[in-house]
Design a protein around this nucleic acid. Structure first.
Lengths: 187, 187, 187, 187
DNA sequence: TCGTAAGCGAGACGGTACGTCTGGTCTTTAC
DNA sequence: GTAAAGACCAGACGTACCGTCTCGCTTACGA
């Protein structure tokens, strides 16, 4: 069965995790703009060419980094309100991690006016969550997009403005507000 | 009395408005990163040095541009709920203007890890609105910041994600949601 | 007789000497390239426009400065050899003054590829001495130019290389060498 | 033995000669000040960054250019007088090459008040010739410096003043004059 | 005494060069 | 075939300087 066809040639060293870590660390330290690809490579201890062989651009690298950081949503339960709360807390926790908000904001900025990056960002980061949430919350795509905008937008804006993640009480306020909204939209 | 003391030296040519317009137009066309200072200067018909004499950096220019675009909030009326709605519609309309969201997002990204720009952004763009809203909405600073995060964050995220401004129905949904929130916080 | 026709308008303030002094001092301190016209103006305490009203360019200012510094050659005596020695010592003393060599070298460099400055340099600084020396040494123009090249070239090169003026013993060696040369050319 | 360990990475493209040629050509055409690094790069067909990777400044590039142009002195023979004549003709020929005098004068001017460039100019251009001449002419350092000042100073001054290299007859006069001088100093 | 001609200070302005930095590609050798 | 090292290209950034310009003010002379 599984013929175990390993591709020929020298196998890739498994340094993706280190690259991601170095990327976020560098962005956390210097911000997106000043986080040079050279610097990230140096921090990881690999060559810049290796990075560009794996990801086609700085934006794509950071996007992959974010995809890796966020990972899958917590599994849906029975209670939509609880699922929503869980999803929001999930997002808040991720965005609070050092460098994530800056990376997000940076890749966002670059995506405007760079269609290729925009495509990558869409397919790899946004679409998966959108699809899952449409299913789990049982809402129309329009509604789900509204929720995502409010949650992610608010959390990012807070991080960007203050440099600090949103305090828990405010996250809870956000949850309550959106749960109330959710009620209004369910049949 | 009022000696009308004009400062000595050649008076500045009044091209600020043209510069702002060219800045937003260029950002709208190419995105923040690709909107070169040289290009903006060329579009305005002035020298790059003139821009750098007036604004210390690209980020500062764009910030000034945003300050100019947003201008003062609509005057407060008697009804807090209506004031809130007016403020949100005000923000939505401004952010929908071509180039504004990209400029916002770009200057935001640059401000992380650039303390000088952060200072400019804070004092010239954020503080004024914060102060006015604390007064007009009669809320604590914490609450006002929450409102700002939700409104601006949501609107920017929508523009960034889709490239299109938030449709009116969604803006109205945002207004309703936040008005309900406002009620809950008033005495 | 001399109707003393003063030109109309406000007479020029007599700051030429101060400007020259500040020019040489600044060049002495920073070198020709870094000696900004702004700086010279500031050091003199006058406005840059005042300088440009009197001299058409930085090079012209420095040339005027040199003309002022060198002044007329010592009067010719009976003995050509002594006249030559006096002229060389005259040149050596002037070039040793702080800033003069740097000014000379700088204006020289700028004159290459700037025909206007070259014209100024020629007519105001070189021609007068050339004419006087042709007369007083009784040599052909070609010979006089050779002498000037040797004397001024040597003294400038020494200052430029070491930053120190040529020591007296070397100046005397130069004199002896050229006096011997002079003998060989006289009828 | 010598394992011929080539340094890792892409080897430098061999364009130094083209860069030097373009540098001198540009300086010849426009003078030192107007000879832009951008222009030189464009004339060579390489990027400006490549130039700045190899030479730290415009002055350093021009100095390297001169070092390359002058090259080693003609080998010393048995006869000091002939060696001196050869060295002078060597210098005269080099300085007569298009652009060389302007380059020399320019880098000279810039070196005053720019310690880093002065250091480069000293160690790379002046010291080598000084050492060789001390040996080959058998004179003290002081005497050699005097000779260098006279020869180089005179030749440069002529080029700077007239824009034309010194005619052969004048070079020969210079040689005769200095040979006589040389005799007077030998034991 | 008043107008007019010019000098002056302060500083904005256009143009242009410098030297630095970055994203992304290409070349060479080693594994 | 993948990795490392680093040269290379294109081009933006921000600074500095030159020489010009604008404008309000001051100093002189002449009518």
């Amino acid at each position: 069965m599984a013929p175990s066809t390993r591709p020929p040639g020298r196998p890739r060293s498994s340094v993706d995790a280190e690259v991601f870590a170095a990327t976020l660390a560098t962005i956390h330290e210097l911000g997106y703009t000043r986080a040079t690809v050279d610097r990230i490579a140096a921090a990881t201890g690999i060559a810049k060419t290796t990075i560009y062989r794996r990801w086609p651009s700085k934006g794509a690298l950071v996007t992959a980094c974010l995809v890796d950081t966020f990972g899958p949503l917590p599994p849906a339960g029975r209670d939509r309100a609880q699922d929503l709360a869980a999803a929001i807390r999930f997002g808040a926790r991720r965005i609070a991690e050092p460098g994530v908000a800056a990376a997000f904001s940076g890749v966002f900025t670059d995506a405007i006016g760079d269609p290729e990056l925009r495509e990558i960002l869409s397919t790899q980061l946004q679409d998966p969550y959108r699809k899952v949430l449409i299913e789990s919350l049982g809402l129309s795509e329009q509604r789900v997009l509204f929720f995502i905008d409010v949650v992610i937008g608010t959390l990012l804006h807070r991080m960007g403005m203050t440099g600090e993640p949103m305090v828990e009480s405010d996250v809870e306020a956000l949850i309550v507000m959106l749960q109330r909204e959710l009620e209004g939209w369910l049949p």
